[in-house]
């Protein structure tokens, strides 16, 4: 197989994989094939996609953000706790909370020169405590009237399509434009592929990195807000169990863990793959509890398959 073909196949492999999965699940249960069902599945995938979308940028620079589930949970707590008091302003407030968490993680990582997985792990502890503090360690229900007036943008329908999908698509377009068409996106790729060369070209690499982590926190918080809107409540453990599927979605979509290669549409496809696998497992009677096992294995396998080993001298 020529190199060019290999590359092309590598680009479209996640889409092919998704189509095969959909066909498999459809063969098992033909009712799976309906526009309505596709819309539901896609809408259900959007919170996962939103969480994974920002981390995609972090993984593209060769880092990782382990704080996203704590950030999303905290955002849900802020939303649920203060929606009655601050109204619509609670939403930017909750998202800002995520941005601050991302900023904290990135400052710890870049200024103190600490590996990102440990910096964001440490920050996630702080964020988790903050979530407990905002919610007073409880799960807080969002009254339906408040939800109707402030959160319909996330849970209603527009033009027959669930609003979650609109939110997800807008996020994908905005992030894709950032990544494909701006100098910021160019530098994200450059840092992931060869950070020293970017540094040596006189670019303030730390600023770009910080921006990536801030975006990651922001998107995770947005995911938390949408999650809270859908569930009608916020809680300090709302987004637990989301970190692994989010990272799996990114890697399965074809974004390389070693950095430099990736895109947000890939993560979109990856999130759909994760969701369809989940549905397929439920159809086949795999217990919800056992699904973590499958995701753990998929994650390791996807990392192993997509890894560019030529870039690794010593693996730690």
């Amino acid at each position: 197989m020529s190199k060019e073909w290999k590359e092309r196949l590598h680009t479209y492999l996640p889409i092919i994989f998704l189509i095969v999965l959909v066909l498999l699940v459809g063969a098992y249960d033909p009712s799976f094939f309906s526009v309505g069902n596709f819309l539901t599945v896609t809408a259900d995938t959007m919170t996962l996609f939103l969480m994974a979308s920002g981390v995609t940028l972090v993984i593209m620079i060769g880092g990782i953000d382990l704080s996203i589930q704590a950030v999303a949970s905290m955002a849900s707590c802020i939303l649920a706790a203060y929606l009655g008091r601050f109204g619509i302003w609670t939403i930017p407030l909750a998202v800002l909370g995520g941005a601050v968490a991302g900023l904290a993680g990135s400052l710890v990582s870049t200024r103190l020169r600490i590996p990102s997985f440990i910096a964001t792990l440490a920050v996630s502890g702080v964020v988790l405590s903050a979530g407990y503090w905002f919610s007073d360690t409880r799960s807080i229900n969002i009254p339906p009237d408040l939800s109707a007036s402030y959160l319909s943008w996330a849970v209603g329908d527009t033009l027959g399509i669930p609003n979650e999908i609109w939110v997800g698509v807008v996020a994908m377009v905005v992030l894709s434009v950032l990544l494909q068409l701006t100098p910021f996106g160019r530098l994200i790729r450059g840092i992931g592929a060869q950070e020293q060369a970017v540094i040596a070209s006189g670019i303030n690499v730390d600023r770009i990195k910080i921006a990536a982590y801030v975006l990651s926190g922001t998107m995770a918080a947005l995911a938390g807000v949408v999650m809270a809107a859908r569930l009608g409540s916020g809680s300090p453990t709302l987004a637990n169990e989301f970190l692994l599927p989010a990272i799996a979605a990114i890697i399965v979509g074809g974004t390389a863990i070693t950095g430099g290669v990736g895109s947000v549409w890939r993560t979109f496809v990856g999130a759909l793959i994760v969701q369809v696998v989940r549905i397929g497992m439920t159809f086949m009677g795999v217990s919800v509890f056992a699904q973590q096992i499958v995701f753990g294995v998929i994650l390791v396998a996807a990392v192993a398959i997509t890894l560019d080993r030529s870039k690794l001298l010593v693996v730690k």
Partner: peptide, 26 residues
Amino acid sequence: VHVKLKTPSFMTTLGIGFAGLGIATA
């Protein structure tokens, strides 16, 4: 997995750890 597939340890152990948690739950 970490040594033979050359996957970074934080990723490997993240995945295997979740699998362990999943088995315990299941």
